[in-house]
Write a protein that binds this DNA or RNA. Structure first.
Lengths: 206, 206, 206, 206
DNA sequence: CATGAATGAGTTTTCATTCAT
DNA sequence: AATGAATGAAAACTCATTCAT
């Protein structure tokens, strides 16, 4: 067996472990996750975990990382298409919401996580987030585009982007927590949310 | 008299247990909460819990209930003061945020709780929330006041109120999760948040 | 309140406790019996038990004693009626079985109990049981009557009585353990049992 | 080889656990059996039980199964030898009693057990037991042999076999419960028991 | 690479019992 | 006479982890 293949297999098993862990977390919450449950499902011995990870914490870290990347990947494919700034903002906000709702467990896990090494990636409220956080950075650009020709400080642009983000975040979290909201109501809420945000910007503009 | 006093003492110990539990949850999350930890701190035997509560679940229920009431009480003292609708909205939103930030652990515990009997009290997104949820109901009144003289459907008013709420909720949650944000930045964010909300409403009006 | 009345009340509560205990044992077996369960049912505090009994063991002892007496009382009313020895044996055996089956839990509890102070009353196999155990004593008389005019040693009479007793005991225990035996089958078994016993005696006689 | 050996060792420890459990049950009754007691004796940690059994219930099940098999094995080696039906019955009854008395704890445990899945194997009183229960079946054959040339219904044969069984069972149980009966008295009782049974049959015959 | 054996520390819960009042 | 408070000891069970093989 070539080294490559071994490496591949190793990576495969790591993924198998992490994916199984993810499934358990999705079904039973982070509390429901145990080494034994994982290895029972994948038909390995509990000790196998310690071959591929230092301990449970490291495994969870890697799981979080993966989820984080999954989210970032999905999100980064979003803020790009249309040329009209208003439509751009509308489209991308809607897309952002929809993507988040397609992976509710991962989104919650990551975005409500309070551990420092996750927050390193997910915090958005600090002064200067527009350069350190892609999400806010892109939003800033859209907002800036939007206000082309108007006098508005970079600081205010950043704050605006941050609050567009937090308000959208708030809607997403509630939509996830309050499961069982009918599709129609969901759509109404999302559309109204976008309307209000655009209104907020429009006014200042005029 | 003696009976009264006993009842009082009983209530005291119940509170002692619940408060200690609350502290542990705040520090270590709900998973970190164990009967042993509680009784070690308050220097009682584990069995005492079962003197005052049926089981751990009942204790947690009571804890949640208490937190829920604490939040409701604090919140209900909010939406009332000024007569100008715009100022009323500004004031009350600010007050709401501040109160939530004064009891971050309780707020998170309750508002991110996904158990059905908590959601019975905390869900706000369903169609008709304006009559079943005080918070949304009060917000609706303010919004209605705001649009006096304009044609706007009750449905849209409710949606608007719901989204003011979720956006504010989003900001609060992020402010709690991203602990260590400097006071100035905090204030900037809060003020800008309120500004954007008001803007959103203003535009439609004009 | 007169001393008598107090004594009465005391006796009443003792009985209340013991009867409740008996009910629990009947429903959940001796393992299911706990102080708390008793006092929950009779609406007293657990500590009350220690007012009326030294400890749980003493209470169980008293319960056993009561059951034992109940059985003895019921049984002693049995071996007496008819004058024909054969019919006497038939009648009384049948009556004995039926009485035992009317209080299966108590019968099992007592008769299968291996503690010395119960065995003091319930053992029947020792040499000399005919004078020390009423049940065997009465059986001996019937058997003796039966063999009137035949040469048969007292020792053999006692042995015979003991084995009539153990065989009947065996049937009773199985009838209790194998609950759900249809009434008809029950009757067939009981009648055949009596038939065989009588046969056993008859033969030697002729 | 290595696998075989491991399986062997596994079986050894399982047996160690079960045998220890059996000893405890023998001494203190089924209530006295606890995981801790077992593992204290065999000098393992309590958790080891869950390595080899799903839970306590499974372990007890296995213990019962083993006892049941032990009894069945011993018993099945019994009803076979002599050609004379009378002697056959005498021999086998005596052998049955002796075997039961050689493993009193196991016999009691199994034969007085009231759980359905044990009763599935141990019940003997139902109509039709002669075809479903080996013990009764074999007894039926002996009884039938005995009555060769006489008119007797199959039903009566079965009933007779059942009552030979229950009466023997009754004697065995009492001999176990009333420990400390001198050997001579034991023998007298056993012999008289067999005599009475044979008498019962003989009479009808003549 | 993978595992079976084993465990220490922990979990919630139940129990019989004591004692001051 | 009766109890509420309190507990030590024990119950069954789970978990993350280690280690020799």
């Amino acid at each position: 067996m070539s080294k490559e293949r071994q490496a591949l297999k190793q990576e495969e098993i790591k993924n198998l472990i992490i994916n199984t862990a993810q499934e358990i977390v999705a079904k039973e919450g982070i509390n429901g996750l145990s080494i034994r449950k994982i290895t029972n499902i994948i038909d390995y011995s509990p000790a196998i975990i310690y071959h591929y990870f230092k301990d449970k914490d490291e495994m969870i870290s890697k799981l979080m990382e993966k989820n984080y990347k999954k989210i970032i990947d999905a999100m980064s494919s979003v803020y790009s298409t249309n040329s009209e700034p208003e439509q751009k903002l509308k489209d991308s906000t809607k897309a952002y919401i929809e993507i988040a709702l397609q992976m509710p467990d991962e989104y919650m896990n990551i975005m409500l996580n309070t551990s420092d090494n996750i927050l390193e990636h997910t915090s958005v409220l600090f002064n200067g987030a527009s350069v350190k956080r892609q999400a806010i950075g892109v939003l800033c650009k859209v907002v800036k585009d939007y206000y082309k020709g108007f006098t508005i400080s970079d600081a205010e642009i950043e704050l605006t982007a941050q609050l567009i983000w937090t308000s959208t975040f708030g809607l997403i979290i509630r939509l996830i927590i309050e499961k069982n909201i009918p599709q129609e109501q969901r759509n109404n809420l999302i559309n109204q949310h976008i309307k209000i945000i655009i209104n907020g910007l429009l006014h200042t503009k005029s």
